[in-house]
């Protein structure tokens, strides 16, 4: 991993030096243990800020569209920058989606793909610690050694704190890249896909409703899920639109339901299950259980995969004459 990090830095330095890119978007260490922060490197001298490790959890695609926006108030000609970015499988799929939706230009993007064995979910580490905070942590290939704010040490198997999305990830390598570095990741684990969704579906309607009442009553409407999501780039979100006003801004359960149902639905056929929403949620709401349901349906009903290539049409911007209509009362 250390070696991949070194290669990454070298490659980025080269790209910046020869003018292939103007800015590189990567991860840098944040001040708290098991946390990284996106960073924007503009000079070869700064490449040492870049890190590559098991906590590069965030989806960097989220940070790309803003770089291609014309600065507000700028007069005269403007050429969008050439941007480099490091991408795991999920980041690259989000990038594919954004290119297809014309939010970022392919020809001004240089993607460095790195195979990924799964990233650590900080919330899971927190849960393993219980009520105390995380004072320090060390990560090796197999485990995370954590020290709580109470001074107690604990060794946790890395598999136990991987992000839920990573555990089921089937696309561990970038699906679109200009350059790939590092080793080929081990093949995806044999997991039963959508097991959590299937299990949830088997519950009674009342149980399902109560589950979501419990989850969504935790929501504080901070919109971290939305803001961390690469797919949520709307200038004005339906949640905040005032004409028409779709929903109130309160944490009244009804409003929260409309928000999360609406947001999940807007991900239909677009969600790459990167887990950014789950990682961002300060309240630890399992939004994935909602998004994965739609992914499951998209896969089963329309035999569609989300953002694996630039060519295929997205599930909801295409149709087949013989699409399923068994859901209809009177087809």
């Amino acid at each position: 991993m250390k070696q991949v990090e070194e290669t990454l830095r070298q490659e980025v330095a080269k790209l910046l030096e020869d003018g292939t890119i103007d800015v590189f978007v990567g991860h840098e260490a944040a001040s708290l243990p098991l946390k990284t922060s996106p960073c924007f490197v503009r000079s070869p001298k700064e490449v040492d800020r870049l890190v590559w490790n098991r906590i590069c959890t965030s989806n960097l695609a989220t940070y790309l569209p803003q770089l291609f926006k014309r600065p507000v108030g700028l007069k005269g000609e403007w050429t969008p920058p050439k941007v480099g970015v490091v991408a795991k499988g999920c980041d690259s799929r989000s990038i594919v989606g954004l290119i297809k939706e014309k939010q970022i230009p392919r020809d001004r993007l240089f993607i460095i793909g790195i195979g990924c064995e799964g990233m650590i979910d900080r919330h899971s580490v927190g849960r393993a610690l219980g009520v105390v905070g995380l004072a320090d942590a060390k990560v090796d290939d197999k485990s995370v050694q954590v020290i709580g704010t109470d001074g107690r040490e604990k060794r946790i198997d890395i598999a136990d704190v991987l992000a839920a999305s990573c555990r089921e990830c089937q696309h561990r390598e970038a699906v679109l890249s200009n350059l790939t570095i590092g080793e080929t990741p081990s093949s995806a684990p044999e997991v039963s896909h959508y097991a959590n969704v299937a299990e949830f579906e088997s519950k009674s309607p009342q149980e399902r409703w109560e589950h979501w009442v419990g989850e969504l009553s935790r929501c504080i409407r901070c919109y971290a899920c939305r803001q961390a999501c690469p797919n949520c780039y709307c200038e004005e979100c339906f949640a905040e639109e005032t004409a028409p006003k779709w929903l109130g801004v309160t944490t009244d359960l009804s409003d929260v339901f409309v928000f999360h149902l609406g947001r999940a639905f807007h991900q239909a056929g677009r969600c790459v299950d990167c887990g950014a929403c789950v990682a961002a949620c300060p309240q630890g709401i399992d939004l994935r259980l909602l998004n994965q349901k739609i992914n499951k349906d998209v896969e089963e009903l329309f035999e569609a995969q989300v953002s694996l290539s630039l060519e295929e049409a997205e599930a909801l911007s295409s149709f087949r004459m013989e699409d399923d209509q068994s859901f209809m009362t009177e087809p």
């Binding site: 922060s37 924007f40 409407r221 919109y223 971290a224 939305r226 961002a280 300060p282």
Partner: peptide, 25 residues
């Protein structure tokens, strides 16, 4: 500004942030 995602988490978890909006329903 590039790093900041524009969510309201920091303000909503902050014990001193007190800005509010008033809306009609």
């Amino acid at each position: 500004g590039l790093k900041c995602l524009g969510c309201g988490t920091c303000a909503y978890v902050c014990p001193t942030c007190h800005c509010f909006d008033i809306t009609d329903e």
